[in-house]
Amino acid sequence: MNNILVTTEDKITTITINRPSKLNALNKETIAELSEAIDSAEDDENTRVIILTGSGEKAFVAGADIAEFADFSPEQGKELAAHGQEILFNKVENCSKPVIAAVNGFALGGGLELAMSAHFRIASDNARVGLPEVSLGVIPGYGGTQRLPQLVGKGRAMEMIMTAGMIDAATAHSYGLVNHVVTQEELISTCEKIAGKIMRNSPVAIGAAIDAVNAGYIDGVDGYQAEIDCFGASFGTDDFKEGTTAFLEKRKAEF
């Protein structure tokens, strides 16, 4: 892996985008490495939660590597977006293990799109986020036009996309785009603390909850029916037996 660092400790896998000289910009190789790292973490029995972050104190991911596609044709552009969405952004969103984005600075363009594909976001107080694509004569292509309105509402998303401007961490928090804002020093420990709370619960149930929540955002899918199906399936799991037995026996469940 040339562009990312992966560490696993206490059942938390931290994936760090490590291109500090490029402010961690996403190029083709980095996207492929991230895709592989998400697959590995999802398959790893020793991983319960994934934290995604950027190296250094300036940027989470300051966008895509524009030099890579500046001379693309419409067909190549379409393929770039489709391939990226499939191998990384949709994969992060549908990962059966919780993915927390630790936004440690600039999250612009593809960087904000990556953070939005995570299950939720924690930002450092120096974070600045935005989708500047229209200033380059293009639009967000890695899910930004879909996920931003889901998170902040249509009007705010339209304004952010049309102005191509950045908002600070406090504004992102007031919009509901990030769940918490903390200092740079507290960022990873805050994510780990939340991960600790998540890890007390059933990993099987959490995976099912991710599926059920995401179902509500898929065209043509009845989210309520997906919830009913996932709820019913839970009754056939060992985690359900353990969780309910532990509750009735007044002890802590061991998942």
Results as ranks from 00 to 15, higher is better:
Val103Pro: 10
Asn104Val: 02
Asn104Arg: 12
Gly105His: 03
Gly105Tyr: 06
Phe106Glu: 06
Phe106Gln: 10
Ala107Thr: 01
Ala107Tyr: 00
Gly109Asn: 15
Gly110Asp: 04
Gly111Gln: 02
Gly111Leu: 10
Gly111Tyr: 04
Gly111Lys: 03
Leu112Tyr: 03
Leu114Gln: 08
Ala115Ile: 05
Ala115His: 04
Met116Ala: 09
Met116Asn: 06
Ser117Lys: 01
Ser117Pro: 04
His119Phe: 00
Ile122Gln: 11
Asp125Met: 12
Asp125Lys: 15
Asn126Val: 04
Asn126Arg: 06
Ala127Phe: 08
Val129Arg: 01
Leu131Ser: 06
Leu131Thr: 07
Pro132Ala: 05
Pro132His: 05
Val134Tyr: 10
Val134Gly: 13
Ser135Pro: 00
Ser135Gln: 13
Ser135Asn: 13
Leu136Arg: 12
Leu136His: 15
Leu136Trp: 14
Leu136Met: 12
Gly137Val: 01
Ile139Tyr: 15
Ile139Trp: 11
Ile139Gln: 11
Pro140Met: 10
Pro140Lys: 05
Pro140Ser: 11
Pro140Cys: 12
Tyr142Arg: 12
Tyr142Gln: 10
Gly143Val: 11
Gly143Met: 01
Gly143Pro: 09
Gly144Pro: 04
Thr145Met: 14
Gln146Phe: 07
Gln146Asn: 10
Arg147Cys: 04
Leu148Val: 08
Leu148Asp: 00
Pro149Arg: 00
Pro149His: 00
Pro149Lys: 00
Pro149Ala: 02
Gln150Phe: 07
Leu151Met: 09
Val152Glu: 05
Val152Met: 10
Val152Leu: 01
Lys154Arg: 07
Gly155Tyr: 11
Arg156Gln: 14
Arg156Asp: 15
Met158Cys: 08
Glu159Gly: 01
Met160Ser: 03
Met160Phe: 07
Met162Ala: 15
Met162Gln: 14
Ala164Tyr: 07
Ala164Gly: 13
Met166Glu: 09
Met166Cys: 13
Ile167Met: 08
Asp168Glu: 11
Asp168Tyr: 01
Ala169Lys: 03
Ala170Ser: 13
Ala170Gly: 07
Thr171His: 12
Thr171Gln: 15
Ala172Thr: 12
Ala172Val: 02
His173Glu: 09
His173Trp: 13
Ser174Tyr: 05
Tyr175Ser: 11
Gly176Pro: 01
Leu177Val: 05
Leu177Met: 15
Leu177Gly: 07
Val178His: 01
Val182Lys: 01
Thr183Trp: 06
Gln184Met: 15
Gln184Gly: 09
Gln184Lys: 10
Glu185Ile: 05
Glu185Met: 03
Glu185Phe: 09
Glu186Cys: 09
Glu186Lys: 14
Thr190His: 12
Thr190Glu: 13
Cys191Trp: 09
Cys191Phe: 06
Glu192Val: 00
Lys193Thr: 12
Lys193His: 12
Ile194Cys: 06
Ala195Thr: 04
Ala195Val: 05
